[in-house]
């Protein structure tokens, strides 16, 4: 299947299960419902359109999309988002996504999940990052981090932006008691694990500086799909200032509304090392289970490879902002 066919198949299956509203990007859908006026839903996708690509055809050759992260090689910089839920799409969704991600040579990320679900994901053998919530009780976080470490995670982390839960429209959803984390508390979490510790939800140079200070092993630049605050910046708006702070010291991941290889290319050009995709994998899963997930990652990777090849970037590390033009939309 090609991209359009995969999406169509996913929509047909989601319609049959009567859950299309939870996954479509149309007006009034769940994914489009961010905090308050949902500015992020309105602007996230538009923001990508501000950038175009310059061609560099002469001397070009087929690009390699391989990346090295946490001392491992992956076939693509398109990684799984920190996934949760999706039980309305299929049973055992996380393990199915994990198998699909493994097949495409990518990396799995897991968000809210039970110990059993996390164990099942590890058992597929896919390199996995485990993100835990910023619970008020640090001990509770450490317990989940330890479990992940023992289970074989390649990295762990927390979403620092989730301490007030998610806000959709005028309602706040916070599953358990959470609290903001101080530099001191983050240092304690970093020290509690041998694995790289990732801070997800960095959206300013200030938090990026603190991430380096606490010894983070990576950051995810994210506006959490718009559920943290209305008018949260688009990750690409702050990526350059964050890259300026971080340099090449730790990997920079990005998520929030990535739909095509061109979107991924723009993030890589502005300083990201890899991109996390959630919605795309949910659509792959809905279209054709594990195989749909593999196909989706492969399709977006092929789109990226084509763009890299025509913009004169032979490897992911060669991509920089010289490939971009910025327009005012």
């Amino acid at each position: 299947m090609d991209y359009g066919e995969l999406i169509k198949a996913a929509e047909a299956n989601l319609t049959a299960k009567n859950v299309l509203k939870s996954y479509s990007l149309g007006e009034g859908s769940y994914l489009r419902e961010g905090a308050e006026t949902n500015s992020v839903g309105r602007f996230n996708l538009q923001y990508f359109e501000r950038f175009g690509f310059k061609f560099r055809m002469i001397d070009s050759r087929e690009a390699s999309t391989e990346v090295t992260l946490f001392n491992r090689t992956f076939r693509t910089p398109i990684l799984s988002g920190a996934l949760s839920g999706m039980i309305d799409i299929t049973d055992r969704p996380l393990v199915k996504v994990a198998s699909g991600v493994k097949e495409s040579g990518s990396m799995m990320w897991v968000g809210i999940a039970s110990s059993d679900q996390v164990r099942e994901v590890f058992e597929t053998g896919v390199p996995t990052v485990r993100i835990v919530k910023p619970y008020q009780e640090i001990e509770m976080m450490i317990k989940e981090l330890k479990e992940a470490e023992e289970g074989g995670a390649i990295a762990v982390g927390t979403d620092i932006d989730f301490f007030y839960g998610a806000k959709r429209g005028d309602r706040v959803f916070a599953p358990k008691a959470m609290a903001p984390k101080s530099v001191k508390e983050l240092k304690r979490l970093v020290a509690a694990t041998k694995l790289p510790f990732i801070l997800k939800g960095v959206l300013s140079a200030q938090d990026a500086e603190k991430a380096v200070e606490v010894g983070a092993g990576g950051i995810v630049v994210s506006n959490h799909g718009g559920v943290v605050i209305d008018f949260a910046a688009h990750p690409l708006e702050v990526l350059p200032e964050i890259k300026a702070v971080i340099g090449d010291r730790i990997p920079i991941f990005v998520d929030s509304g990535f739909r095509r290889g061109s979107d991924v290319m723009k993030a890589l050009a502005l300083g990201a090392d890899a991109v996390l995709v959630g919605w795309l994998l949910a659509m792959g899963l809905a279209a054709d289970g594990s195989q749909g997930v593999t196909e989706m990652v492969n399709i977006i990777t092929a789109e990226l490879r084509r763009i890299m090849s025509v913009t004169g970037c032979r490897t992911v590390t060669q991509i920089d902002d010289k490939v971009l033009v910025k327009r005012s939309v």
């Binding site: 932006d161 301490f163 959206l203 991430a211 605050i229 008018f231 949260a232 910046a233």
Partner: peptide
Amino acid sequence: LDRYTFRLQCIDAV
């Protein structure tokens, strides 16, 4: 009003 977005600063938040 819609032109402006926010830089999050979550670490050490109160």
